[in-house]
Simulated assay, not measured.
Amino acid sequence: MGPIGIFDSGYGGLTVFKEISNLLPQYDYIYLGDNARVPYGTRSYDTVYQYTLECVNHLFDMGCHLVILACNTASAKALRSIQQKDLPQRRDRRNVLGVIRPTTELIDRFTTSKHVGILATSGTVNSQSYVLEILKFFPAISVYQEACPMWVPLVENNEMASAGARYFVKQHIDRLFQQSNAIDAVILACTHYPLLLPLIKEFIPKHVQVISQGNIVAHSLADYLTRHREMESLCTKGGNKQFFTTESIENFNEKAGLFYGSKVEAQHLDLMNKGVSCRKI
């Protein structure tokens, strides 16, 4: 038995983890942010797959039987390979889930016009993962995407209230709706973007539903654990949360609270030496 693992390339997955831990506080969790190798969004499929697999294996080694990829890029570029190639080779019972499918399989509930917008990083847009997943479930829905490369740096540098943030948020929302003014639902397909939600709602048409993933992923996980009792029985229940980063502990702790909504105290994970260290770097 062991905790549930939550993985992200950096800080953004903490917005998903916050919703998961709020809905399912009874479980133990380990959060791992691979901040030393961020950003994932601009890297190749092979690189994202290798990085993600390394971190997933570390979480398995730390006792996790179930790992959630709380990262759209990792879900888009690595999840399928891990599920189809790596997990079948293991003799123990492990599983890895992502954030894209829980969102796309429910999108029909949010749109009347059947025109859906995606705001995401360049890597997620280029992967076409949201387009393919939505069309698999709902072939009648038209999907429009807009890459927002400046949004993540704005969030991570706590510039959400700056003039620059207003400029880039408005710019990309305008570009999205130039593709179709019939869009009535927009998915924030990056776990950083909920921190820009007040600004996004200021510039997006009032009738449009803006969909953040955290709450959807949390309820999807709850449903998964209910349906898969064999996996649920392997998840320890003590209400404990641990945070690990592959980069500076001080930097992680300083920024992580912004995403998680409360103070975070992390430990350092050295991927090169495959060991956990509490030293400050």
Rank of each mutant, 00 (worst) to 15 (best):
L188D: 02
L188N: 06
L188G: 04
A189S: 12
A189N: 04
A189E: 01
C190E: 01
C190R: 04
C190H: 03
H192Y: 07
H192A: 02
H192R: 02
Y193L: 03
Y193R: 02
P194E: 01
P194T: 03
L195Q: 02
L195T: 07
L195W: 08
L196Y: 11
L197A: 07
L197S: 09
L197P: 08
L197K: 12
P198D: 11
I200G: 04
I200T: 09
I200M: 07
I200F: 06
I200V: 15
K201R: 15
E202S: 05
F203H: 15
I204K: 10
I204E: 08
I204S: 15
I204F: 13
P205C: 11
P205N: 02
K206F: 14
K206P: 09
K206V: 15
H207L: 00
Q209H: 10
Q209M: 11
V210I: 15
V210P: 11
V210T: 14
I211H: 00
I211F: 00
I211C: 00
S212D: 08
S212G: 05
S212E: 15
Q213D: 01
Q213C: 08
G214K: 05
N215L: 12
N215M: 10
N215W: 03
I216H: 10
I216W: 13
V217Y: 03
V217I: 15
V217D: 08
A218C: 04
A218I: 08
H219D: 05
S220K: 01
S220F: 06
A222K: 11
A222G: 13
A222W: 02
A222H: 09
D223W: 09
D223R: 08
Y224W: 05
L225C: 06
T226Y: 12
R227W: 01
R227T: 13
R227Y: 10
R227H: 07
R227E: 10
R227K: 15
H228V: 09
H228Q: 06
H228C: 10
R229M: 12
R229W: 09
E230W: 02
E230C: 03
M231R: 00
M231D: 06
E232L: 10
E232A: 12
E232S: 12
E232F: 00
E232W: 04
S233Q: 11
S233R: 08
L234S: 05
C235H: 07
C235S: 14
C235T: 13
T236P: 14
K237T: 13
K237Q: 13
G238N: 14
G239T: 04
G239H: 04
G239M: 05
N240F: 09
N240E: 14
Q242D: 11
Q242I: 05
F243K: 05
F243G: 06
F244Q: 12
F244W: 12
T245W: 02
T246H: 06
T246L: 06
T246R: 03
T246S: 13
E247C: 05
S248A: 07
S248T: 09
S248D: 04
I249M: 01
E250Y: 02
E250L: 10
F252Q: 09
F252D: 10
E254N: 13
E254I: 01
K255M: 13
K255R: 13
G257L: 11
G257A: 08
G257E: 13
G257W: 09
L258E: 00
F259Y: 10
Y260K: 03
G261W: 04
S262V: 10
S262C: 11
K263E: 12
K263S: 09
K263T: 15
E265F: 14
A266P: 13
Q267W: 06
